[in-house]
Design a binder for these strands. Structure first.
Lengths: 335, 335
DNA sequence: TTGTATGCGTTATCAA
DNA sequence: TTGATAACGCATACAA
């Protein structure tokens, strides 16, 4: 079923059908009705490929996520769901591309095959080959997280540096003198993953400013890893009375370790950081933390991308979010 | 950059370029080399829309997941990642569609706009409107999970009924006389979600067969819900000595409740069921359970879909997997 | 208010 | 071994 067949059945020309559908030309009410009636009867919808070819745009955006091998954290998965939802509100479909390395087939198909009008990049590194590749290709893109260089392009990000610093100040205000940062995995830090490296610098700076004894450790994205991580940490530095973290997946394990070590939260130990809301609420007791505003970030990213597709020449726009720290029940004055 | 431009630069016709790329016609080695050289220099890739229009296929499949509002469980998210990976191996891109209701825009775009060559449906219900719609539309599809009717189409599924029955038999063999099933949320059962309803029937049947006192409860997909669920359960029926579950998300909460109630696993209480491998291993002690073979199911589903796209008229094929129950450490003889 | 004709970038058929 | 050319289904500039 194509537009010609609709035209034939409605007794008009193909262009009239096209205009009746797009509204880009006035069509008399009677013929419009007749056309819509026929379309409704046969369940016609324009062929997306033909339309894309003629229009020069696909009404599709690409969503680049880390490759399948690497386990996605719940927050990342939240991004996928929220971005798809936001895109849907703009009548955009989403093509998923699991790309990590530079020479990735699906990524290349996406951008050089004109499969998408724009791309949303997740999990960007401080120096990111994919961002560089996109910039060269000229395909509009927005990244969640931002690169180091000035040539960053559009992005929306969370101010990890500032937020983690705030957490440290909060703990310092409560009288904690020895604090640890439980960061994302070591390889994330090594590869220049923004949240990990910015959390570290924010932590280090704020601790120095408040003359706090700071210990920073990396921890794999696993609950069990969080358990051993905290055990090791407190056996080496038993003076530590509080933890700041950006590793939500490790949180349940950290909780277990603290319980086993007799460090009751918040009476004898405080925990805070930047994590997904769900994980903060699942913690016992509920975690005082900055919640990652997944939905808002996704919405902003899609909105930015839509803008950019419409006006590719416009200057880069950046959105740096600093959500409030939700005071729950996991921090208290140091004893 | 298009094929005509490549042809011009290589001094050949467009068709020769096309054939050099597809290999569907022999092209002399010299001209082929020259063409590839030019293509390499300018970084040309065929326009996907034009190719789709000419070829009549998009080299894209649709992946239908539950709408964004509903939280995806880790296993479902594993499916998304694995399916995208499997599709990539077949040089297929994946269009994500979060669709639940019947009248869903993105779902309709997908199938009636010829955006995809086929669809993979996840989270199917016993009676599924989307499956019915796909069948009517004629778009090839494979579902993960199967409907009740004979008009099921292609699917791959896990034998929840048989697996849960096996778990019950395992517990019966160990001497347990009062066993509970912790199922997925009530609304899943009500809406005819396959795994929930089949787990229930397998549980009921096996328990009857072995004259076991059976208690079946539903539990929201939340760790905290698992906690209260087990507490309530054991306060009402303290004689219960074992739990069978298909609710992996509730598992951490169940673990906490059992610990608090002094029901040491496996000495004083046994736990088993069908859950994602990761969750089974994260349980303390590691859970004796049938692991949901996410990767295998995704691979089989994609393979089935590729077959179906190639031969739409072929009879429906079904894959019902029965992975072994991995003996870990969470079950022991009843005391 | 509507119809005709052209182009979008490929693939594939028909000639040579 | 290669080149011209007709689809593919739609949008749109140009006519009427």
């Amino acid at each position: 079923m194509n537009i010609g067949e609709i035209a034939r059945r409605a007794g008009v020309s193909r262009s009239t059908v096209s205009y009746a559908l797009s509204g880009k030309r006035t069509v008399s009410e009677v013929t419009r009705r007749r056309i819509l009636q026929v379309i409704d009867e046969v369940g016609y919808r324009p062929n997306a490929s033909a339309r894309a070819l003629a229009e020069g745009r696909t009404r599709t955006i690409g969503l680049v996520i880390p490759p399948a091998g690497r386990r996605l954290t719940p927050v990342q998965l939240g991004f996928v769901a929220s971005i798809v939802a936001a895109a849907g509100r703009h009548e955009l479909d989403v093509l998923l591309s699991p790309s990590g390395g530079d020479h990735d087939r699906s990524f290349e198909r996406l951008i050089s095959g004109r499969r998408v009008d724009g791309v949303i990049l997740t999990e960007v590194r401080l120096r990111d080959a994919r961002a560089a590749r996109l910039r060269r290709s000229g395909v509009p893109f927005v990244s969640i997280g931002h690169t180091a260089g000035a040539e960053a392009g559009c992005w929306v990000d969370l101010d990890y540096e500032g937020l983690i610093a705030r957490c440290v100040h909060h703990l310092a205000d409560l009288g904690h003198r020895a604090v640890a940062l439980v960061n994302r995995p070591q390889e994330f830090l090594d590869s220049g993953y923004g949240p990990a490296s910015r959390a570290l610098s924010g932590f280090t700076a704020a601790a120095a400013e408040r003359s706090i004894e700071a210990t920073a450790v990396c921890c794999p994205d696993e609950a069990t890893a969080g358990e051993t991580c905290v055990e090791d940490l407190l056996s080496i530095r038993p003076e530590i009375t509080a933890i700041v973290t950006v590793n939500e997946v490790a949180l349940p394990g950290m909780e277990r370790a603290l319980r086993r070590l007799g460090r009751a939260v918040p009476e004898r130990f405080s925990v805070t950081g930047v994590v997904g809301r769900h994980w903060a609420e699942e913690f016992h007791p509920p975690l005082t933390a900055a919640d990652v505003p997944v939905t808002e970030m996704a919405d902003r990213a899609v909105a930015l991308l839509v803008e950019r597709i419409a006006t590719p020449a416009a200057p880069d726009r950046h959105v740096l979010l600093t959500p409030p720290i939700s005071l729950r029940a996991s921090t208290a004055p140091a004893r």
